[in-house]
Simulated assay, not measured.
Amino acid sequence: MPAGRARVLYLAGSGRSGSTLVTTMLGQLDGFVAAGELRYLWQRGLVENRLCGCGQPVRDCPLWSAVLRDLPGPDETPSDAALSDAGRIDAAGIAGRLRSRLRMRGLPGMLRRHRAGRPAIDRHPDDEVIGAVYRALARHAPTLAAGGPVIVDSSKLPPYGLLLDGLPGLDVRVLHLVRDPRATAYSWRRRRRLDGPADDRLMSRPPVWKAALLWLVWNVTTRRLWSAAGPDRYLRIRYEDLVADPAAVLRRIARFAGSDPVELPITPDGLVRLAPTHSVAGNPSRHRVGAVPISPDAEWIGKLSGRPYAVVTAIAAPLLRRFGYPLRRPPATQTGATAAPTPRPAEPGPVVGAGPVVGAGSGVEAEPVAGVVRGGEG
């Protein structure tokens, strides 16, 4: 890593692919800080002051309070005296402008500019503050790792990853996380509270055609933007492979990010030990702690009816075989696992996972049920 640059592991892809679990597991390793979906820091963290993964409101969290103290407000340079109040930062304005700058309708122009070697997203004064968040987090996150911590950002949205990739002072590597689109479409249909049992708001429930279209667009975009960047900048994994062999895949991800962990948070009997993180946004399971079984969520195999299955398969077909997913409905075994995936054709960039799938659409991110984390909702 170039000296003085904050290391960022950006999880890209579509929703309901297990990003919250991956982020939380990485956050258990020394040298990693699980920051969650940082593109939502401004609205959910600062405007709404939702709970940090540590259990305190974001503005009261010791780590995020230290980060906020380092952020320059309008026409300011960092000053401890001026930074005692997070309200001086135009969080609502930054959140609104980010939504406008990252809209899907602007994606064709972003891709054209990126292909031409120009900044894909127009520069804005907000970028100084956005980049400062990552640099301040790298300074304040506790770690013994040489070179500072790896900030795990599970924002997923490819345009936001492009924005980060163009900011000075950041060293961004992209982890492309994919999951069977039939599993993600089914997961989107579940009713989930937005941020845990105490939250009366529900997550959005897009129709299956829209869930499939988003899966296709964001995964095609992620692959086009970064798959040719080389094995030190881009890694693609399937969530099913993580569930099948969590220790091997987690270690592979950590090494890709520039770390070689001595100890993993996975027990010999397959439990993952989760301690609180400082995730500012994500699936409600980011608050889960303790020794938790990773359970495959193959409910969609039997319960996603024929017409929705056909719709999702037709829309996602251009990438299904490339990612190693069958067109036909996989058979369920007595244990709930699915049959082995179809072979994947070789392509540039490292791809993790050549073993059998344990539950296509395996999940660990829905609300915990009877102590088991399940349902890739990230």
Rank of each mutant, 00 (worst) to 15 (best):
G117C: 12
D127Y: 11
A81Q: 11
P142L: 03
E128G: 14
A82R: 13
A145I: 06
A95L: 07
A81K: 14
V178I: 09
I130A: 09
V67K: 05
E128W: 12
D127F: 13
S65N: 14
H140E: 08
G161M: 00
L167G: 05
A92I: 05
A132Q: 13
R123F: 11
R97M: 11
R115M: 08
R123M: 11
I89A: 10
G147P: 01
D153E: 03
R112W: 15
S65I: 04
H114A: 14
A145T: 08
V133P: 09
R139C: 06
L170V: 10
D80Q: 10
D90A: 12
R101F: 04
D80L: 12
Y134C: 05
I121G: 00
L107F: 04
G147C: 01
W64I: 03
R103S: 12
A95E: 05
D165E: 14
P149I: 02
A141S: 15
T77Y: 15
G93R: 14
L83S: 15
P158R: 01
R97L: 13
R101Q: 09
G73A: 15
H124R: 15
L111W: 02
G161H: 04
L71P: 08
T77R: 12
P168L: 04
R103F: 03
S79E: 14
R179M: 01
G169M: 02
H124V: 09
L98G: 03
D171Y: 04
A92D: 15
D153T: 03
D85F: 09
P78L: 11
Y160H: 05
V178H: 06
R97N: 12
L163F: 05
P149Y: 02
